[in-house]
Design a protein around this nucleic acid. Sequence first.
DNA 1: AATAGTCAATTATATTTAACATTATAGTTA
DNA 2: TAACTATAATGTTAAATATAATTGACTATT
Lengths: 102, 102
Amino acid sequence: MSKAVILPQTERILATMGEQIKLARLRRHIPMYIIASRSGLSRQTVISIEKGLPSVSIGNYAMVLHALQGMDSELLNVCKDDKMGRTIQDLELKTPKRIRRR
Amino acid sequence: MSKAVILPQTERILATMGEQIKLARLRRHIPMYIIASRSGLSRQTVISIEKGLPSVSIGNYAMVLHALQGMDSELLNVCKDDKMGRTIQDLELKTPKRIRRR
DNA sequence: AATAGTCAATTATATTTAACATTATAGTTA
DNA sequence: TAACTATAATGTTAAATATAATTGACTATT
């Protein structure tokens, strides 16, 4: 019933990400319909991804990236270096499996 | 009608990404239900994201990352450095807006 | 002439919700 | 120190609702 609203700022990030994916495809000279065919998705969905629409599932993003010659591993770059988190962690010298608020 | 299948390899990538997001949350001592509340999503969806389920929308991923203190910009790391693509590009000294297959 | 974008209807799937079950932690006690 | 306990945090399920994805036909762009 309640609909989570996406911030303009976050929307821009996704749009930029979509553009980067599009550029990666263009550099490889692969038409959208080939990416669609390789990933098993519709051409529509590929268009949505390159636009950076928030509604597309991350699995579909991953499959498109994969169709771009193994670029799905690029997703591992997300949160890889968590500098702020590491700092907090180092101050405490432990990382629990659950949180207990003080 | 046709259902795109996700490769085990790609599934693992998403699972790892989910774990990284979970770790970022744990380092900050924020319970899941707070992330849910901040992002406007259900607790369910936060759980799905930390498991790396492919079905969750990238918008929801982004909102959870944002709730983790501006980590949505981490998404910009995807396809940022496209080495292979750059190489192709440099060999041609141009980047067209559309593709013409040979 | 091939690639890319738009639209609307249909079908498929995700998300929320709520109630309940399980697990991990902090603080206590033996 | 180790086990105990209270409870917060996490996990699970299913039904109802909301939304995404496909499809096909069409338009526009390069």
